[in-house]
């Protein structure tokens, strides 16, 4: 597959379960070594020039834990120090992020005891802390309540307006339709279609386009009659 994410775009990677979204994103941020091929972030190859590339990236993986036996503030402080940031900057940004994401109330609760939505917000905070140029997120809106979801959307939109690039995977069509400037639909490990949102939908509902490209439902209503 060959995928080009334009700088400054809000890019949605769509696909059914098992399409290879997580695999693709993992390989592009250096978590999974590809058999062949490259991933380039703003001119820096992730696999041959990892230090520069990883400095520009903010990553929010799905199904991957953070160091969750720290509390929220500790985890952010740790992430900041890990990124080699100044102590004062870490303190200030961490507090701000905790306040904005409504995580400050959790106090000294360990992240492992957070609810699923809080964990997502925490992971977002960790990815944003060092002010990356590119944000790669795997399923950022899964298990997030509507209030937190809209908060995350606002933050991401502001981030893109400020010149950042966001690429995220999802299978929630409404979110993609509302947020994204660019969309790629993949299935069975291949990119099926890619372009700006307007190009791909052509005025139709994104869900209809998606089902048509990926292959539609087969249930006719005869099954599950015992329900």
């Amino acid at each position: 597959m060959d995928l080009d994410v334009p700088a400054g775009s809000f890019f949605g990677l769509l696909g059914p379960n098992g399409a290879g979204k997580t695999t693709t994103l993992s390989m592009s941020v250096g978590l999974l070594r590809p058999d062949h091929g490259t991933a380039v972030v703003l001119g820096h190859d992730v696999w041959s020039d990892p230090v520069q590339a990883k400095r520009l990236l903010g990553v929010m993986p799905d199904g991957v834990r953070v160091f969750d036996r720290l509390d929220g503030a500790e985890l952010l402080a740790y992430t900041g120090m890990l990124r080699g940031m100044e102590r004062a900057v870490v303190d200030q940004r961490a507090k701000e992020l905790l306040d904005v994401l409504a995580l400050a109330d959790a106090g000294r609760t360990l992240v492992i005891d957070y609810s699923a939505g809080m964990k997502k917000k925490m992971a977002l905070a960790c990815a944003l802390l060092h002010g990356p140029r590119v944000l790669v997120m795997d399923e950022p809106f899964e298990a997030v309540d509507p209030v937190s979801g809209s908060l995350i959307r606002d933050i991401l939109q502001r981030y893109v307006l400020g010149g950042g690039t966001v690429i995220f995977s999802s299978h929630v069509m409404e979110v993609v339709e509302r947020l994204c400037s660019h969309v790629a639909i993949m299935a069975e490990g291949r990119i099926r279609t890619v372009g700006t949102l307007a190009e791909i939908t052509g005025g139709r509902e994104l869900e209809d386009v998606f089902v048509e490209i990926v292959g539609g439902r087969t249930a006719t209503g005869e099954e599950l009659s015992w329900l």
């Binding site: 941020v29 250096g30 978590l31 990892p50 230090v51 990883k54 400095r55 990236l57 990553v59 993986p61 991957v64 953070v66 160091f67 992430t79 890990l82 990124r83 960790c126």
Partner: peptide, 8 residues
Amino acid sequence: AVHLITGV
């Protein structure tokens, strides 16, 4: 993975 992403 966090360390790997950060490039420690």
